[in-house]
Design a protein around this nucleic acid. Structure first.
Length: 242
DNA sequence: CGCCAGGCCGTGT
DNA sequence: ACACGGCATGGC
């Protein structure tokens, strides 16, 4: 594969969405009861298995720390212990505290007030928080604050690269986050309706679903529903040999 | 047991 | 701008 146009890549990503939806059905994401829980989960799941996050969330619930007020009250040292199962607690605990502090100092302690900020500005504000990078910011925007922004993750990058969905980018080893989300936008650009949020929602959820099952760091693409559907003929040949 | 998970950040080139 | 290593626990 020498060069693949962005339009072609976008079409292939759109095809991937269809294949995944057919294989897995609607995912009804994000798995949480409230927007604030979505936000906590978004922090906690960073490079961490969701199973571990569930344990942390259960701890937080038992300690009544799954609400803004609850998290505000819980001492940092105790917060560290509560979220311990999901790892990186020396970073994640202060990061969660910083989110509440931001809410308190700038938005009257209210998620609704935060949600009133225009999307672009809101995204910048989230990115300024410690422990919030592109994916976490976009996950919060999409799944907690209802903004129509696409989310990209390591699974999407792997799937896209392994299945040859992307044009190769000269001089760089890996496609950037911004380039991935831009492709996701293009993938759904010609879908009907003004709000593509529900499509972005399903797309990322389905990406994680197939990623967990078939797309780990070391290739284990056996019985992946995408095989034979989207790949280049060359890679299909290679893959069918196993 | 070793590898890895729904990233982020600081540092070095 | 990009690459790389550290961060931490627990499931499999």
């Amino acid at each position: 594969m020498k060069f693949r146009s962005q339009l072609d890549s976008a079409r292939r990503l759109r095809g991937m969405y269809d294949a995944l939806l057919a294989a897995y059905g609607p995912q009804h994401w994000w798995p949480a009861r409230t927007p604030f829980e979505v936000i906590l989960g978004a922090y906690l799941t960073q490079n961490t298995a969701w199973k571990a996050v569930e344990r942390s969330l259960a701890n937080l619930r038992a300690a009544d720390a799954l609400t803004i007020g609850g998290l505000r009250k819980v001492p940092l040292a105790k917060l560290r212990k509560l979220i311990r199962p999901s790892g990186f607690y020396m970073r994640k605990a202060p990061a969660l505290k910083a989110f509440v502090t931001m809410l308190d100092e700038e938005f009257g302690g209210s998620l609704d007030e935060l949600a009133a900020v225009p999307t672009a500005q809101l995204r910048r504000r989230l990115l300024d928080l410690p422990g919030v990078g592109h994916e976490t910011a976009d996950a919060i925007l999409l799944y907690a604050l209802g903004r129509a922004v696409p989310v990209a993750d390591e699974y999407l990058r792997r799937i896209a690269e392994r299945h040859g969905l992307l044009k190769e980018i000269p001089g760089r080893a890996r496609i950037s986050y911004g380039e991935l989300t831009e492709l996701a936008r293009r993938a759904f650009a010609s879908d009907p309706g003004e709000n593509h949020g529900p499509l972005y929602n399903e797309f990322h959820a389905l990406t994680v679903a197939v990623g967990k099952a078939h797309c780990g760091r070391t290739a284990r693409c056996e019985r992946c529903p995408l095989v034979g559907d989207l790949q280049d003929s060359k890679q299909r040949t290679v893959n069918s040999k196993q």
